[in-house]
Design a protein around this nucleic acid. Structure first.
Lengths: 165, 165
DNA sequence: GTCAGATTGATTGATGTCGAACTATTCGAT
DNA sequence: ATCGAATAGTTCGACATCAATCAATCTGAC
């Protein structure tokens, strides 16, 4: 009485050697874990899909913010994307050497640098945005528009909550 | 006709110098961007809240999977958490030196190592899981249980979709 | 006006992760 | 039984990010 055995959970790692290791239900229902997994896999995939431009794909968020806030100083860009001031420096170095962004001196504050998207930067952002949209369509296969809306709003709320710490 | 001006988007960076840089609506509604932001901020916060154990906080997911799959080989653990085989090596080195996990030889395959949680590891996982649960409660302030459920399921679906690539 | 403290961007050292090797094993076709 | 291909874990070099620190500049209290 054990060959045609029970339904869902029984199929342990030993029995189906090719399947993914099962997550405990704790992990399966952990928002943090699922967020992390989604982030890791989606960014890996996106960078694989859009190489070049000095790895700009990973920084589409940053570039998009620069486009929307021309002339913003670096520390505010860092804050906006959740990185340290010091981490943004080599990123902008790279983007600048790729001709995607430009640092200009600020009149009235000689410490600061104002960051702008170049013409090429505009093109790159447009291309990457397109690609990102495709990517999102693939990622969200099987989800309703309403469900996606709820997720985006929920994540946005979570980000807001975390920023207050 | 311009002092008491329009509602939502008008308040540009120049006018409210302390506020966060505004995201374009494209970014605001980008699932990828929101996932990334949530992940960055939540893991940073969690590690700040739970330092020690050789940075185990960041690897709670991995440890939890080890607990649920005692004796699994390293490459399957890597796959389960979305990392490269080679990235898991130094993590396990660290966790092993902290006495949290243990690598044992596998009889029947002298290449493989079977990974187990130690007694101390069990305690650490329990403590970190507790802390993670608290963290999630804080993160999700303002979200309904139903909304959280939809998000977890949606993210889970997204992870599944991305794994197929 | 001056000077202590804050702020901006940059630099440095440590660690995490990746991708491409490499070594030791195991597997499979013959 | 043998040997080429696949596999498990590791090592190595490159880069991202952080935290702490630095130099230049700005601000505000006096």
């Amino acid at each position: 009485m054990s060959d045609d055995l029970d339904i869902s959970t029984a199929r342990s790692a030993a029995e189906s050697p090719d399947a993914l290791l099962p997550l405990g239900s704790e992990l399966q229902h952990s928002l943090n874990f699922q967020i992390r997994m989604a982030q890791i896999l989606s960014y890996r995939q996106f960078e694989k899909k859009q190489p070049g431009y000095g790895g700009a794909a990973r920084f589409l968020g940053l570039l998009s913010i620069i486009k929307n806030n021309p002339g913003a100083p670096q520390h505010r860009l860092a804050e906006a994307v959740g990185l340290q001031r010091s981490s943004v420096v080599p990123i902008l170095d790279r983007m600048e050497s790729e001709g995607i962004v430009e640092r200009r001196d600020v009149e009235g504050d000689r410490r600061a640098k104002a960051v702008y998207l170049t013409g090429k930067g505009d093109q790159v952002v447009a291309e990457l945005s397109d690609s990102a949209l495709q990517m999102e369509r693939y990622m969200t296969a099987g989800l309703s528009p309403e469900q996606i809306r709820v997720m985006v709003e929920g994540l946005s709320q979570i980000v807001e909550n975390l920023r207050k710490l």
